[in-house]
Every structure is written in structure tokens, then in C-alpha cells.
Amino acid sequence: MSNEWPLWEVFIRGQHGMSHRHVGSLHAADAESAMMNARDVYTRRNEGVSIWVVEAAHIAASAPGDKGPLFEPANSKVYRHPTFFDIPDDAGAM
């Protein structure tokens, strides 16, 4: 069995109420030490108010080859954007 500590992905919520955002990764023996390491490596300058750590092996990711089937169907559905609809100025704020 390898003696390298597992890899963890680190997510931080910034000051302004935004959602957690991926900031990087690190190695740690368990969740508790991953949390401590994330604090030291990624929040030395008040970058966050909350940390998530997730073991990298538990993340399911889409493959680059899936880009077409996953995202292309949205291209033809321009009516999902508000700008698709022509509303006269006279109708007021909308």
C-alpha cells in the first residue's frame, strides 16, 4: 500500500456570501488534517469564512470528450435568455 497521503480538493467561501469555490488541492492523512492544512495553505490572508475539503477520489468529473453531448444542446435554445423576447419600452420595466 502506498504511503503517500491521499489528495484532497479544497473549496473556500469568500467574504461576500458567494458559494464555495475550488481553490486548489493538498495532501493529508484524513479530513481533520486536510482542514488544518487547507487553512494554512489557502487562507493566510483572510481569503475565506468557510472551508470544504473533499477527497479527490470521491469527485466524479465529466470527460473532455463529453463536452459536445453535454453542452451543445443549449446552443440552440436561445429562448432561454431574456434578450430573446422583444418587449416594447412602453410596457415598462420588466
Binding site: 502506498s2 503517500e4 489528495l7 495553505v41
Partner: peptide, 19 residues
């Protein structure tokens, strides 16, 4: 130390291990 860790992590995404 932090800079070293950011860079090791970036390097590991290319398929080489930290060790």
C-alpha cells in the same frame, strides 16, 4: 512553502506523484 505546494499540486495533475 505555500507556493511550493500550489506548484506540486499543479504538477501532479500531469500524472506524476508527489513522492
Amino acid at each position: 512553502a505555500g507556493h511550493g505546494l500550489y506548484l506540486y499540486s499543479a504538477c501532479e495533475t500531469l500524472g506524476v506523484s508527489r513522492d
